[in-house]
Computed example of a mutant assay.
Amino acid sequence: MPRTKEFDPEAALQAALELFWQRGYEATSMADLVEHTGIGRASIYATFGNKHDLYLKALERYEELRDPQLLTELSQPGPALPAVRAVVRRFAAEAGSEAERLRGCFVTNTAAELSPHDAVFARRVERSWEHVETLMHSALTRAQAQDELPADRDPRALARMLLVLMQGLRVTGKGSSEPGRVRDAAEQALTVLD
């Protein structure tokens, strides 16, 4: 008769996510994961697989938690351009806040640490960024249809520019203790929407 799990897999996954987010993949050992999740090594392997598999599940969990917020923000009825501006400003505020800046964005952290040499993570990061770009493109296309955005602007190119800006804000915010740097960059970039 199989033994029943004596731990909450969802809570363990969240604990692993927090640890990976704080330290990164390479700096997190299996011993660290055992200590932080409070479950044994064998239980981690049996439930989540190896460290690579667990990190991938943590990345998926991060996206599940973050993506609905972005979709909600960018798909509200009414004017679309204020929502786009609000999202960029939120990214800048988070990147410049003391509480958020040291952790950064889990997807961006994964892109910097793992994507260059791990095709699985490179595909996951690309998929995440394509999702953000699609949401931005949709909102900008709606803004143009509602005469909020000049007709000579390319919504796809603007969405890509804003995606790159938002990821850059995360990287810069993580490395800088000057919140004005990311805030000023975001505000300057948003002038292209005028």
Rank of each mutant, 00 (worst) to 15 (best):
L149Q: 12
T141I: 11
S115Q: 11
R66T: 05
D152C: 15
L162Q: 07
V88Y: 03
P82E: 15
G96F: 03
F121M: 11
D147L: 09
H131D: 06
F121G: 01
L102H: 04
L114H: 01
T110Y: 00
R103S: 00
R127Q: 13
P155R: 10
E73S: 02
G168R: 02
A122V: 02
Q76G: 14
T108Y: 00
R127P: 00
Q69A: 10
R101P: 06
L135N: 03
L81T: 04
M136W: 11
R90H: 09
L163I: 14
R142N: 14
E100R: 06
A122N: 06
M161W: 09
D147F: 12
P116N: 03
R89K: 14
V171H: 11
H117S: 05
A159H: 03
A145F: 12
S115W: 08
H137M: 13
A95H: 01
L135V: 07
A111H: 03
L135S: 06
L163E: 12
A145D: 15
R66I: 08
D152I: 15
M161E: 08
L158K: 09
V132W: 00
L169R: 02
R124W: 01
L135T: 04
L169H: 01
A86H: 06
L65I: 11
E73R: 04
Q146P: 05
R89W: 08
R89G: 02
V88I: 15
G96Y: 00
S138P: 03
F91M: 12
A112H: 03
E73Q: 12
L158I: 14
D147E: 15
G104Q: 00
F121Q: 01
E130F: 13
D67A: 06
G96N: 04
E130H: 14
W129G: 00
A159Y: 07
M136R: 06
R123A: 11
L140Y: 11
L135H: 03
V120Q: 01
H131I: 08
L162I: 14
A80P: 11
Q69P: 02
A151W: 12
Q69V: 11
T141K: 10
G168Q: 08
R142C: 08
R170Y: 06
G78Q: 14
R90Y: 03
Q146Y: 13
R124Y: 03
T134N: 11
G175R: 13
R170D: 08
Q144K: 15
T110L: 02
E130R: 14
R89Q: 12
R85N: 10
H137F: 12
E133N: 05
H137G: 07
S97L: 04
W129N: 07
V120S: 04
L140V: 12
T72F: 07
E94V: 05
F106S: 03
A92E: 04
H117K: 07
T172P: 07
R103V: 00
A86I: 01
D154M: 10
H137P: 01
A112C: 07
A122H: 05
G173K: 01
P68W: 13
T108C: 05
D118Y: 03
